[in-house]
């Protein structure tokens, strides 16, 4: 079960248990679900951004040099980026424990 911080009593709860902090799920690191991680070969990368647009987690983001870097805090290791990379620049490797 997820460890839940910020659990409060009913008096502090927003009306109807509404959540007023947008995007707070970013506190929830889904990277721990992963059994394999993507490794990017920058030499081969053509900076097309497929990995970025096809990531269901929005774990990839542009790094300013035109590359797209995967944030392993959130990457669940689905492997779509490696599968869809048109030049095979991403490989999935098993997470070592």
């Amino acid at each position: 079960m997820v460890k839940i911080d910020a659990i409060m009593g009913w008096k502090k709860l927003n009306l109807g248990a509404a959540i007023t902090e947008p995007g707070s799920a970013s506190l929830f690191k889904t990277g721990s679900w992963r059994t394999q991680r993507p490794i990017l070969d920058k030499e081969a990368c053509i900076r097309c951004g497929r990995c970025w647009i096809y990531c269901p987690e929005a774990a990839y983001s542009p790094n300013g040099d035109g590359y797209f870097i995967c944030n392993l805090d959130y990457c669940k290791g689905c492997g779509i980026c490696a599968e869809e990379c048109p030049v095979g620049a991403i490989t999935m490797v098993l997470e070592e424990i």
């Binding site: 995007g23 799920a25 970013s26 506190l27 929830f28 690191k29 889904t30 679900w33 269901p56 987690e57 929005a58 774990a59 944030n71 805090d73 959130y74 669940k76 290791g77 689905c78 492997g79 779509i80």
Partner: peptide, 12 residues
């Protein structure tokens, strides 16, 4: 829809 959502891996 920010990272940290709980969809299954590879969710379309």
């Amino acid at each position: 829809l920010v990272p940290g959502h709980r969809a299954c891996q590879g969710c379309g």
